[in-house]
Design a protein around this nucleic acid. Structure first.
Lengths: 248, 248
DNA sequence: ATTGACTCTCACGTTACGTGATACTTTAAA
DNA sequence: TTTAAAGTATCACGTAACGTGAGAGTCAAT
């Protein structure tokens, strides 16, 4: 069992960080000495490794706490998911390297670079790995929408629900047409805007696409959506994918 | 020329961020409309790209501002340095992937993993790229010490200078002995502690070693230090390297 | 003229610690 | 056994980098 300085030196994080993690309930050591000293066990260190990987991937500490406290949390699975996420991060890094090379060529007058192209290697999606985390450890869109809704007044809830239903009904009318038609895409845009302005969560196009995929993968979504019309979830999923791919 | 929302949507950063960068003088648009709207030119966007690369590499905004305001700042050179840094970042990412693979093997009982090994892919050095930035855009140890000194009272300056000179003199006395001797290492530790408590900058052992190397690589340092004794810069450099290697 | 979208500044809030202070505990040396 | 230095705790303010909401001014289309 290690005390704070020992852990701090072993890993290279500050004692203050360890205190902070204890305070917020993220990592509280399994044992305390009689005089109130924190004593970290091997198990604590195993969990700390998990935390540091999630932190490296840009997850806020609160979210990390959520995740590791899931009853279904399993370290081996987590490592595999984190591995996948790190590979994606590596891909993004490669995109940035490609962008630098292009910019250097541009500086040398070897190629043209539009303003848009100048920033194509950057991706400021909120947290690109949150979608994956959600799939594995919790469906935050559903959870968050439930929470957000429950904190509204009744009339606010009715208004929002009315808007949502209207969009669903509109989409249901369109579900026999092509998901990529102009009308369908317009309606999906409305859905995209609605989600982004009412649920305290900002969807990237990629995340929106992932959400659409979940509509058909997750029974709860499919059932809920298909109330408005048989096959609506599938239609929306396809339309959302098309929307995201068109706008990326 | 683009207004804030256009820039925000082009790149994916918030309007607030652009406001903030203007406020702190990091990126102020070249033009303003008659009514006070920020108007960003292509040149502004070029600089913003630079800023975002530095930010990706973990540089604080203040430091980024320092760097890009250097008279010697040159975008092509910056891109090349940033490229190098991103490659290093990629290497660190690979180390983490390797660590995950090792941890997974451990979970499966295929290998042993000590507590130390469990964290070997992590590196929490302050900002690992600062050393390189310093080499290229400014010798912050010198600059910062000058700035720090100029904001002190005269008596504070004398006291600090006295301490510094005493350490130099001590080291000068030892310069004909081995840089790794106990006495030399003690004196170097004093220098390390002095630097870390007087210049508003925290040296990692690696950075301290790098600084020692600069003493012989940078004419200004060598000249300044050798005032205390011929060959002192070289001696200190070697002793600092030994000190860092022993403590890492 | 009106309205909705856009822009500005202001200012408080959030997140994740860094830092210094004060008091208690532990450890090693005298 | 005592002492002093190192280690640990809690407290609380500060920093960095925005996020968020508010209120007022601007712009463009109807």
């Amino acid at each position: 069992m290690l005390k704070v300085k020992e852990v701090s030196e072993l890993i290279g994080i500050s004692v203050r960080t360890l205190h902070h993690y204890d305070e917020i309930g993220l990592l509280s050591p399994e044992k305390m000495s009689g005089s109130g000293y924190r004593l970290y066990t091997d198990t604590d260190l195993e969990m700390l490794q998990q935390i540091l990987f999630f932190k490296e991937l840009g997850f806020p500490l609160k979210r990390i706490k959520d995740i590791i406290n899931q009853p279904s949390f399993n370290r081996k699975e987590a490592l595999e998911t984190q591995r996948k996420m790190l590979l994606e991060k590596k891909k993004r890094l490669n995109q940035m390297l490609t962008l630098i090379d292009k910019t250097l060529k541009h500086e040398k007058g070897e190629l043209e670079l539009s303003n848009k192209e100048r920033f194509e290697g950057f991706d400021f999606s909120k947290n690109p790995y949150e979608e994956e985390a959600r799939e594995r450890w919790g469906n935050e869109a559903v959870d968050k929408s439930k929470k957000k809704v429950s904190s509204m007044s009744t009339s606010e809830q009715k208004e929002m629900e009315g808007k949502m239903n209207a969009i669903y009904r509109r989409l249901a009318e369109l579900r026999d047409s092509s998901p990529t038609s102009e009308e369908s895409q317009e309606a999906i845009k409305e859905w995209y805007d609605f989600l982004n302005s009412n649920f305290g969560h900002q969807y990237s196009y990629e995340a929106f696409k992932g959400l659409g995929q979940m509509y058909v993968a997750d029974e709860r979504f499919t059932k809920n959506i298909d109330q408005f019309g048989e096959g609506l979830a599938k239609f929306m999923s396809e339309a959302m994918t098309a929307f995201a791919d068109k706008n990326k």
